[in-house]
Amino acid sequence: MIPMPNRTSPVWTDAELLECVAVLPEAPNVKTFSFRAPSGATFVYKAGQFITLDLPVPGGNVQRTFTMSSSPLSAGYISVTVKVQEGSVGSRWMHDHLTIGTRIKAYGPAGIFHLPDQPDGKYLYISAGSGVTPLMSMATTLYELGNDPDICFIQCAKRPRDLIFRQKLELMTSRTAGIDLHFVVGQNDPYEVWTGYRGRFNQLMLGLMCQDYLERDVYCCGPESFMDSVREILISLGYDMDRYHQEAFSAPVDDPEDLPEFNDVEADATAAAEVTFAKSGKTAMGKETDTVLALARANGVPLPSGCSFGLCGTCKIKKISGDVHMVHNGGITDAEVDAGYILACCSHPLGNVEVEA
């Protein structure tokens, strides 16, 4: 159980307005807003939960939910970290008009994406963009408990300058042996040196950053496409998805019944698959858990290959018909996939498939 500080003041309820007491720039188009209760009431919530702010935008109030990026152990205030999204009315108003001294209506806290009551496990946090906010709250809470936590923290962003909380995460990591921190960016900032990971987060990066990922509870937050990719990576590596947790990036969930149902593809070890190699005139029988490359080798079909990890692109071939499930590591472009190409080393046939080989 997470110990909470002794409080002589009352606990804040949403009957009281919140007063903005600090505004801190974090990254391009990202600010952290801190709030206190004018009465001095304290805040009770779980790390990872969200609060709903009633924003007085022109044309009428709108309600927007934001995950608290602060730790519940710092009970005297709460913080939300907000990125201006394209076309967003609420976040744009906050960046332009929410200043120190402004009082607004708020509701909550709420949400089921949070640390367990007894947070003594091994954790893997994976985030992208502003999805880092609930994971920052969790990591800060575990750090502030005073014992070394056991966290592997992976944060992804477009550029180094877009890494929200970079300095704070580096500071916490430098003061405990219990946080293993990794950053992944899509590209460098101009005229700046970046020696970390570059590219799209993939299986190889995960294995290099966190070798014991199968032993950890995974918490993930980011854009939907990013979380879909993370789930695909974990499933392909045999991770127990009962230990996987993710936050709804656009609309946090407050009721387990409202959790989305994932249409993830999982290869079935009992389902038969058939691959026809058109040029070779051979047909290979196997299972969905077999790769196209493995079936080719087992049936004497010569296919060029290199890394066998979906990275180099050597085994790229044209798919004539059928469906495959492919989780690669950057060895093929989206345009090539749209044109019908697959990487044989990491493509699992789903039913009957025909390829040019």
Results as ranks from 00 to 15, higher is better:
Met4Trp: 11
Met4Tyr: 15
Trp12Ala: 00
Ala15Asn: 10
Glu19Met: 11
Cys20Met: 09
Phe35Asp: 01
Arg36Val: 07
Arg36Pro: 00
Phe50His: 14
Asp54Gly: 01
Asp54Lys: 07
Pro58Lys: 02
Asn61Trp: 04
Pro72Ala: 04
Leu73Phe: 03
Ile78Val: 13
Thr99Pro: 03
Ile104Asp: 00
Lys105Tyr: 14
Lys105Leu: 12
Phe113Asn: 02
Lys122Trp: 01
Lys122Phe: 03
Tyr125His: 03
Ile126Val: 12
Ser130Arg: 02
Gly131Ala: 13
Pro134Met: 05
Ala139Lys: 04
Asp150Pro: 08
Arg159Thr: 10
Leu163Phe: 10
Thr173Asp: 03
Ser174Gln: 08
Asp189Ala: 08
Glu192Gln: 13
Trp194Glu: 14
Thr195Glu: 14
Gly199Asp: 01
Asn202Ala: 08
Leu204Met: 15
Met205Lys: 03
Gly207Asn: 15
Met209Val: 13
Arg216Tyr: 15
Ser225Tyr: 11
Val230Ala: 14
Tyr244Ala: 07
Glu247Ala: 09
Ser250Ile: 07
Asp268Thr: 13
Asp268Lys: 12
Asp268Glu: 13
Thr270Gln: 13
Thr270Trp: 10
Ala271Pro: 08
Ala272Arg: 12
Lys279Trp: 10
Met285Tyr: 07
Thr289Leu: 06
Ala296Asp: 02
Asn299Phe: 07
Asn299Glu: 05
Pro302Leu: 02
Pro302Lys: 03
Ser305Gly: 05
Gly306Arg: 02
Ser308Asp: 12
Phe309Thr: 11
Leu311Cys: 10
Leu311Asn: 03
Asp323Tyr: 12
His325Pro: 01
Val327Ala: 04
Val327Phe: 12
Asn329Lys: 04
Ala335Leu: 14
Val337Tyr: 15
Asp338Ala: 08
His348Ala: 06
Asn352His: 11
Glu356Met: 13
